[in-house]
């Protein structure tokens, strides 16, 4: 019985995620980058939100204050039903503070986005 409950939940997760935002892994690690003094981590985003194509990357401390970071783009374009892998870089001296890496959905100012909801998902350092 429990197996069927889990099965239904997994099917629900993967079949009805028609308007969803996903950001993984839940727990990430800062690793040395190929440039001295820089640490990096790799995250994945999946956009299944209709009408939302852009997500803002944020690196935050334990109080959710923003920290400096570098990525190829700070606001990334993720078309509907696509995945993207994002490399994020911070200075080594920011590693002790950099606790969360988040993405927040961006709503278009031209009114084309019909949504009422802004989503943000934050992963935490391991």
């Amino acid at each position: 019985m429990k197996f069927f409950a889990v099965l239904i939940f997994v099917i629900l997760c993967y079949s009805s995620v028609a308007d969803a935002h996903e950001w993984t892994p839940t727990y990430f690690q800062w690793k040395p980058a190929y440039v001295k003094g820089i640490s990096t981590t790799t995250m994945k985003i999946r956009n299944a939100r209709k009408g939302v194509d852009y997500y803002e990357i944020q690196v935050l401390d334990s109080e959710m204050n923003p920290l400096k970071f570098a990525a190829t783009e700070r606001i990334i374009y993720v078309p509907y039903l696509r995945r993207r892998t994002v490399d994020i870089y911070i200075p080594d001296n920011s590693v002790p503070q950099a606790m969360y890496v988040c993405t927040r959905s961006k709503i278009r100012k031209d009114g084309q986005s019909k949504t009422f909801i802004s989503s943000r998902i934050c992963s935490k350092v391991k």
Binding site: V10, C13, S16, V17, A18, D19, A20, H21, E22, W23, T24, P25, T26, Y27, R49, K114, T115, F116, I117, S119, R120, I121
Partner: peptide, 15 residues
């Protein structure tokens, strides 16, 4: 593989 994750889904847009 199934890994830990959180998915935020807009079920109904408000009016």
């Amino acid at each position: 593989s199934v890994e830990s994750r959180c998915i935020v889904i807009t079920d109904t847009d408000g009016i």
